[in-house]
Write a protein that binds this DNA or RNA. Structure first.
Length: 653
DNA sequence: CAGTAGTTCT
């Protein structure tokens, strides 16, 4: 055991703290006192350096370690790996081989993981051949990492084969194979594996629970969590984080509080994973202040903690708090920027979206797919073609031109801005299209008045892809039929929605069809339809019906509809607005004033109209009945001047 | 005896 003796070391580094206090040095020779084992001293010293992520220092020490063997090499390889330097770790492995040091099973576990991280299948295969050559192919942990490797590379068959040929399997093997079925989208089979596992530990339980949470089956996740507790398994921090996450999805505040209390009791209140989930829980339950209390208690906040708190503030509308916190983040990650960008987007503050986006670019942070999608969505909402085109250019510079999310956002942006040609161009160039991409294009065509094309594209989608139409696509199709006057075809789609496409028509679908029937003069059919609805009709549906009545002189129905609208007016903002419009169109001005007054008394606010113009790439917004525009006085002054000049010109001519 | 494989947060 004792590594006593003399070891040659260079002069430059013998004074290093690594050697004190157990070693002395004389004439460039490390004198190791007999009876003391320095090997472990060295190793634990280097290990600590690796754990702190001090790569250069760790490598410096590794190079000078007088006790080099397979273990120190393996430690260095895995140290590089856990610090994200995958290629370097492979290079070190090759160097090790060139020195004639024989790798063992543990070495291969790290090397296989490096191959997985680099998603390099060929490299993995050559490592595998070496594994077989040296006879490690029956090692349990090595097989486990081989299964993980195959899974990451999408080689499901291979993963299964490795699992099946194993002579011995442990908990980890079974837990890994759970993920095989999850990756294939077969959670039932995963559950079967879980139920049939010969052995389960807290990790297997949390794997299953987290999978249910991720898929959105929060109820099943919680059920499993309860079963786990009943089985006497102590949940670890990852398990608790998953459970809290599930409760956040379900917005179950009370059970969440119970777990929170438990977390404090067992001393895990400082865990960043748990705390982030708790912040999210309180945020989802509409308690951002309680989330803030949790946030303030966390000692070592990581990026996720900060970003979760910001998202919590912005999703509950506290954008000033969000921005204040954002400005305090010591190290802003891409996620921090994205949560601020999407916060403003969610709250319809599109100018702020661009402000933060510009700050982001100025700070040197490269945007990612999610940033660009959010910013493009802001462009779409502002119908700001100039800005949208600018972002389109940036997607090329950043190399995202083939990304399906960015492409879809571009299609939508161009369509919403009315530039349907560019929208189609982007769509046709996309190498990968998903359900959302098709939805955006079909919707874009329908809403821009290209109803025929929209219907054609829908048929193309049904013919060439396996994508099933969703609620929004069908809405667009009904809209297209309505605006093309293809009433029977529209009715056909409406009637087959539920039996054929398995989609229950919602209020918006009904409104579309009512509108379609009313426009084409089939007013009484429209009335029958609206009366047959199981859900509450939208105010717009009544409005469409009324407008049809007026066009086609259906006075009886008009009277009934107007009465209905009056009745509805008490309940909804839109009802009052509609009512006052009905009165207005009938010329009953005193009634209009009365209705508006009633709205004001009841504190109902009509969402304000807003117009804008783009001047020198900057949007200027103008709100109705509201002098909130900063330069309003100046603008009015200029208008007066213009008017004066016009009058002068007019008189001179 | 050391070096390793599976699960957690926006």
């Amino acid at each position: 055991m004792a590594a006593a003796g003399h070891v040659n070391i260079p002069e430059t580094w013998w004074k290093h703290e690594m050697f004190t206090p157990k070693c002395t040095c004389l004439d460039n020779e490390l004198i190791i006192k007999s009876g003391e084992d320095h090997r472990n001293h060295f190793r634990s010293f280097i290990k600590k350096k690796w754990r702190y992520g001090l790569v250069d220092e760790s490598m410096w020490l590794f190079r000078r370690n007088p006790f080099q063997n397979v273990i120190s090499w393996t430690a260095a390889i895995s140290g590089l790996l856990s610090n994200g330097m995958h290629l370097k770790s492979i290079e070190l492995f090759l160097e090790m081989l060139s020195y004639g040091v024989m790798p063992n099973n543990v070495t291969f576990v790290s090397v296989v993981r490096a191959c997985a991280e680099m998603t390099d299948f060929a490299l993995g295969m050559s490592v595998l051949s070496l594994v077989v050559k040296l006879g490690f192919e029956y090692d349990v942990s090595l097989c486990n990492s081989l299964i993980t490797f195959s899974l990451r590379l999408g080689k499901m068959e291979m993963a299964r084969r490795v699992f099946e040929q194993m002579e011995k399997r442990d908990v980890i093997s079974w837990t890994v194979i759970l993920d095989l079925y999850v990756e294939m989208g077969n959670l039932q089979e995963a559950r079967k594996v879980f139920d049939e596992m010969p052995e389960r530990n807290e990790v297997s339980w949390s794997a299953m629970i987290s999978r249910y949470t991720q898929i959105g089956d929060s109820k099943d996740a919680i059920e499993l969590f309860c079963q786990m507790i009943e089985n006497g398994i102590k949940p670890n921090s990852s398990c608790l984080a998953s459970a809290i996450n599930a409760l956040a999805n379900l917005k179950s505040l009370q059970p969440g509080k119970t777990i929170h209390a438990h977390v404090i009791k067992i001393g895990l209140a400082n865990d960043v994973f748990i705390s982030s989930s708790l912040i999210d829980l309180y945020g989802s339950c509409g308690r951002p202040k309680d989330g803030r209390l949790v946030f303030d208690m966390v000692q070592n906040k990581n990026a996720v903690c900060w970003n979760t708190m910001i998202s919590t503030y912005s999703s509950s509308g506290h954008l000033e708090e969000a921005k204040k916190l954002f400005d305090q983040i010591p190290m802003k990650s891409i996620g921090s920027w994205n949560s601020m960008v999407s916060g403003y987007l969610e709250n319809d503050q599109y100018n702020k979206v661009f402000e933060v986006f510009n700050d982001m670019l100025l700070s040197g942070q490269k945007p990612d797919v999610s940033t660009l999608s959010s910013v493009l969505c802001a462009c779409a909402n502002l119908t700001s073609l100039e800005k949208g085109k600018d972002i389109h250019g940036k997607t090329f510079k950043l190399g995202f031109q083939h990304d399906v999310f960015v492409g879809t956002s571009l299609v939508d942006m161009y369509a919403k801005s009315g530039d349907i040609d560019n929208s189609k161009r982007v769509f046709n160039k996309m190498t990968e299209k998903n359900e959302v991409s098709w939805t955006a294009m079909i919707q874009g065509l329908a809403e821009n008045g290209f109803a025929e094309e929209s219907l054609e594209l829908f048929q193309e989608m049904e013919k060439t892809t396996r994508i099933k139409p969703n609620e929004l696509i069908l809405l667009a199709i009904l809209f297209a039929c309505s605006h093309c006057g293809l009433v029977d075809r529209g009715l056909h789609y409406f009637n087959v929605m539920e039996p054929f496409y398995n989609i229950k028509p919602n209020e918006r679908h009904y409104t579309c069809v009512v509108d379609m029937l009313s426009r084409s003069g089939r007013v009484s059919e429209a009335e029958d339809l609206i009366k047959s609805m199981l859900c509450e009709p939208e105010v717009n549906a009544w409005a469409a019906l009324l407008s049809g009545c007026k066009t086609y002189g259906e006075d009886d129905i008009a009277e009934r509809t107007a009465a209905k609208i009056q009745e509805l007016a008490g309940k909804k903002t839109g009802g009052y607005v509609l009512l006052s419009n009905v009165f207005a169109s009938a010329g009953k001005w005193p009634e209009v004033v009365k209705t508006r007054k009633l709205m004001k008394e009841r504190g109902l606010k009509k969402s304000g109209g807003c117009s804008w113009i783009e001047v020198r790439n900057e949007s200027n917004l103008f709100y109705s009945q509201d002098g909130s525009c900063n330069d309003l006085n100046e603008i009015c002054g200029v208008l007066e001047q213009l008017k004066y000049h016009m009058l002068v010109l007019f008189e001179n001519n």
